[in-house]
Computed example of a mutant assay.
Amino acid sequence: MQQLSKGKYYGAHTQKLNFDQFLVTDTIYTHDKVDWHYHENPYFTFLLEGKLYEANKKESYYLESGSLVFHNWQDAHYNIKPPEHTRGFHIELTKDWFTNFDISLSNAEGSIQVENPYIKQHIYKIFLETKKRDEFSKISIEMLLLNTFGAIEKESEDQKEKRPRWVAKILEIIHEQPELCTSLSDLAIELNIHPVHLSRQFPKYFYTSLGNYIKTVKLNKALIQIIKKESSITQIAIDSGFYDQSHFIASFKKSFNLTPLAYRKITTDVNFIQF
């Protein structure tokens, strides 16, 4: 079985940035199928465009635009790509990076498909930093990575505790039936719990308010469309479930300190430099 060294992925790199103990790549996948292999270092794969089928020794899953997966080192897997444009953003970290920041990988064995919307938003911000590229990019990315692994560790610990049934159900509704999230009372009825109980208990399991969580999911949905450049900002606001364009722009600026149009320009209209 082939081991891929640092920075090696099957595809054409439009950008490769080496920050010594971590490396980021923006890659267009070119192979219809990649046979069993593993990588020298742990890394994230964030699918920006297209679709991908991936399988390891324990599970398999279909990835779409906006999917995020963390692979621990020596985690063997294979990939199948449909005949369409597919693009991935990778963040690869050496073992020295984990040692320097005293981060254990014991809670991140094998491959993990990450669904937490706040972790995904960290990755979107890292992606933005790689396109802005200034003297503060490295420290900004490392801070976001530390927050990411902190959230992964916390989530891993929490999953060991027994949770009420409505916790899994509300996640399913937020992601699959967002139209039910416009009214707290209607949402509580779907979950068969009192709305006051839902409002008070939600932060216990998700560390933020219900409204903030839903807004973050909407922003992440919008972000992937912004990167694709297939829709106008107005259409993206509508498709992502925002009340109107002005509300969408205000929410976006609060999270990213720039407008959706500016984010699109920075992340898609740059001249990539390959190292």
Score class of each variant (00 low, 15 high):
Met1Val: 03
Gln2Met: 12
Leu4Pro: 00
Lys6Trp: 00
Lys6Thr: 01
Tyr10Val: 05
Gly11Asp: 05
Thr14Lys: 02
Lys16Asn: 00
Asn18Ala: 06
Phe19Pro: 00
Asp20Ser: 14
Tyr29Asp: 03
Asp32Cys: 13
Asp35Leu: 14
Trp36Thr: 03
Glu40Thr: 12
Thr45Ile: 09
Leu48Glu: 10
Lys51Tyr: 14
Leu52Gln: 14
Leu52Met: 10
Ala55Tyr: 10
Lys57Ser: 07
Tyr61Ser: 12
Glu64Cys: 11
His71Phe: 06
Asn72Tyr: 04
Gln74Cys: 09
Asp75Pro: 01
Asp75Met: 04
His77Asp: 02
Ile80Gly: 01
Pro82Met: 05
His85Gln: 14
Thr86Ser: 03
Gly88Gln: 02
Ile91Phe: 01
Ile91Glu: 06
Thr94Pro: 00
Thr94Ala: 11
Trp97Glu: 02
Trp97Asp: 05
Phe101Met: 06
Asp102Pro: 02
Asp102Tyr: 03
Ser104Asn: 06
Asn107Ile: 10
Ile112Gln: 14
Ile112Ser: 15
Gln113Leu: 02
Val114Gly: 07
Tyr118Glu: 08
Ile119Glu: 07
Lys120Leu: 05
Lys120Ser: 05
Tyr124Met: 13
Phe127Cys: 00
Leu128Lys: 07
Glu129Phe: 04
Lys138Arg: 05
Ile139Arg: 13
Leu144Phe: 09
Leu146Pro: 01
Asn147Gln: 15
Glu153Lys: 04
Glu157Lys: 15
Gln159Arg: 07
Arg163Ser: 04
Arg165Asn: 13
Val167Glu: 15
Ala168Ser: 15
Lys169Arg: 04
Leu171Thr: 09
Glu172Cys: 00
Pro178Leu: 08
Leu180Val: 06
Ser183Gln: 00
Leu184Asp: 12
Leu191Pro: 08
Leu191Cys: 14
His194Thr: 13
His197Glu: 07
Arg200Ser: 09
Pro203Asn: 10
Tyr205Val: 06
Ser209Arg: 05
Lys215Glu: 15
Lys218His: 04
Lys221Thr: 10
Ala222Arg: 02
Ile224Lys: 13
Ile226Arg: 04
Ser231Ala: 13
Ser232Phe: 10
Ile238Gly: 03
Gly241Thr: 13
Gly241Met: 12
Gln245His: 11
Ile249Phe: 03
Phe252Leu: 00
Phe252Gln: 00
Phe256Ala: 04
Thr259His: 10
Pro260Glu: 08
Ile266Val: 12
Asp269Cys: 07
Asn271Lys: 13
